[in-house]
Amino acid sequence: MLRYLFHRLWQSAITLVLASIVVFIGIRALPGDPATAMAGEEADPATIAAVRAQLGLDQPLPVQYFKFVGHAITGDFGRSIRTGTPVREMIGTTLPVTVQLAVYAMLVAVLAGLIAGVVAAVFRGRWPEWTANGFSLFALSVPTFWLGILAVLYLSVQLRWFPASGYVSPFEQPMRGIYYLTLPALILGLAHAAVVQRQTRASMVDTLTADFVRTARAKGLGRGAVIFRYGLRNSLIVVTTIVGLQLGGLIAGAVVTERIFSLPGIGKLTLDSVFTRDYPVIQAVVLVITTSYIVINLLVDVLYTVIDPRVRVSGRAR
């Protein structure tokens, strides 16, 4: 187990280094000059050159990269070009909002996806399966931004069931905070629920038609025990994989949802920073999201051996 964990940590570290290089180079490939944006379009070349020197953009790229990595390791991401606020403070303010939204959306996706997947697997060839499959097809086909706009128009503006925008911290006002996050979480989690449903159904169908399940039924094991003890339990490995991958994707893909519902999360911060060519903020945000994605996948790999001790990867988990 320790050997496997060390191997995965080493892989994660290499992935993080490569990701930091891609992020650093990719940000600088964006059109526009942050020094010009900060100094103003009508600034003279001397002023722009002074701003570039102040930001360190006049130095060679390798020097800029190693300075960026050295400061990032200590948690120092510099200051925003646009506001002058320390980037660490901006991320510390916006990241919790996105994490709360992502966790809530994933809870919605897992609950809805598991229920629909179990129903589709148990009632194969009947109307409950067709209904569950229709739900997943609809959720995967409809764009999130379009569904979000419709939800705001009908559920918020016309019916007034949910607020159209705004955010309240669940840690300060739990019920009100959950109420404000419910509609964005439903919209964001819908497509992910469809993925969980399809994977759960496929895994349970394979398990319920296996020989050992037929043997258990022949020995008199009840239908409920077969479904939950064998079918659902054996599908948890697949669901865990999907949840791990989707949770990282939720954090990274909350940009549209946060924009529609005016949530002060890291997605909105990223979009605003891209528009203003705020290099320090974009670099820090993308690096934080990448790190969270890598860490989540590492935890999912470790959880495999907890959920099912039979799982071994090339003998390294022993």
Rank of each mutant, 00 (worst) to 15 (best):
D211S: 10
A102F: 07
W146H: 03
Q59F: 01
A225C: 00
L271G: 00
E172Y: 09
D211H: 10
W146T: 01
G222F: 03
D76C: 08
L111K: 09
I178R: 00
Y293L: 09
I187S: 05
N133D: 15
A210V: 04
I21H: 07
R223N: 14
H7Q: 13
V122W: 13
F77S: 04
I48Y: 08
V213P: 14
P264D: 09
F68Y: 14
V108P: 06
G224P: 04
G56E: 09
P163N: 04
M38L: 11
E42H: 15
A225Q: 06
F68K: 12
L140E: 10
L247P: 00
S235K: 14
T74R: 15
R198T: 11
I21T: 11
V281R: 01
A46V: 15
P174C: 08
L232G: 03
D278G: 07
L183A: 11
L101H: 07
Q283A: 14
R160W: 03
R8H: 01
R233W: 14
S80M: 08
V196Q: 12
P34W: 09
R126G: 04
L18V: 10
A151F: 15
Y167S: 07
Q199N: 13
G70L: 12
R124L: 15
G244Y: 14
Y4D: 11
G113M: 06
I289N: 00
G265V: 05
L190V: 08
R82Y: 01
I187R: 13
D278Q: 12
Q158W: 09
E172S: 14
I307E: 11
R318A: 09
V238R: 05
P31W: 05
F145Y: 15
N297C: 14
A151Y: 05
F138R: 00
A72N: 09
A49M: 10
V281K: 00
G249T: 12
I48C: 00
A194Y: 13
V295R: 02
M204D: 00
A191Y: 14
F135A: 14
V63E: 04
E172L: 13
V205K: 03
E89P: 05
G75K: 06
V243H: 04
P163L: 03
A19K: 02
I282G: 01
D206R: 01
S273N: 02
W161I: 07
I266P: 07
W10C: 15
T209D: 12
P60W: 15
A210L: 05
A194F: 14
R316H: 06
P143G: 07
A254G: 11
T291E: 01
I251M: 08
Q54E: 15
L9D: 03
T74Q: 13
R3D: 01
Y230R: 03
S20C: 05
G56M: 02
V51Y: 11
E258F: 14
V238Y: 05
T257A: 09
R82A: 09
M38F: 06
E89N: 12
A53K: 12
L299P: 02
A19S: 13
G231S: 06
F138E: 03
D44S: 07
A72D: 06
P96D: 11
V295Q: 02
P280E: 04
G78A: 02
T98C: 06
V118G: 06
